[in-house]
Write a protein that binds this DNA or RNA. Structure first.
Lengths: 147, 147
DNA sequence: CTTGATTGGTGCGATATCGAACTATATGGG
DNA sequence: CCCATATAGTTCGATATCGCACCAATCAAG
């Protein structure tokens, strides 16, 4: 990979896949029954970016097919964690709003995971971890632009 | 995260999840019908690490449940890409061997993806990419040890 | 040797994921 | 205005993933 060798990317993606597995498992251990990582990711997104966005925009943000987002939102609605309302600006579209229960759940999970992640961070070189995120973001953007 | 703040880890895992999505999609675009990323990952693993290993060891390596590995291997066997034989050292276990067709397919996919990834690498800071893999590996190991 | 606990693998049921086809609405060109 | 095309969301069917329960083989303690 020093003179660009694609094999390095394989190994990188492999490592990323495993970390993804472990992160999911860790997350789901803290979530109430019937909720999985995508549910939490959506709640978190609604808080970080703000709610009132559309399903399609969220599907793009997470790079999943819109059918998957439909399914995830259905689960969240069933648990009263989000509300879905018509989109006043576009009759085809909808808007997604987090409920008070959703806000609460998200905060509880963050708190529970905070302790969990804190332990991880004690074993890690935090400085280096800080450095890799922008590199990953760059990688994500390049991958997204060239497909 | 400078003074360890768990929120940084959320964002990191989020970015990792998206890259994982994109990498999967890119990979599967190059795979023959009916085969998906886990199939290729197994073939690649058998070549890199050597075949004759057991399903359970591979499940551990990829951090997936053994039932998932059973399923993936079933697909590979159906396509004649691997052979499964008894394990002479342990009657409960089996051994997994890549076939000539499997070797061939793996090489073809690598070649096709090589060009694809090459384009990506042209748009990336390769030096920084090289630096992040050991950090990810460290993260993976710590996550694995503390669960 | 016997027996209880452990381990590797599979079958099954529940749920997740995703592509294809469909509906309804929106948009742009005549 | 009308129509062709594009877009947001859903439905549906196929397959993937995973936890649970099970079987068979191994191991460990006595």
């Amino acid at each position: 990979m020093a003179q660009p060798n694609p094999t390095g990317l394989f190994e990188l993606f492999n490592e990323i896949g495993i970390i993804n597995q472990l992160a999911r498992a860790r997350m789901e251990a803290r979530l109430p029954d019937g909720l999985i990582t995508p549910h939490f990711s959506v709640l978190n997104h609604l808080i970080r970016v703000g709610d009132g966005t559309t399903p399609q925009r969220m599907a793009s943000a997470f790079q999943v097919p819109k059918t998957s987002m439909t399914h995830t939102l259905k689960g969240l609605v069933a648990h009263n964690l989000v509300d879905i309302r018509p989109n006043p600006e576009d009759g085809r579209s909808k808007t997604v709003w987090i409920t008070e229960a959703g806000r609460q759940l998200r905060n509880d999970v963050i708190a529970a995971l905070g302790a969990d992640f804190g332990i991880l961070l004690q074993h890690l070189n935090v400085e280096k971890l800080l450095e890799i995120k922008p590199v990953l973001t760059e990688l994500r953007i390049v991958m997204d632009e060239n497909r």
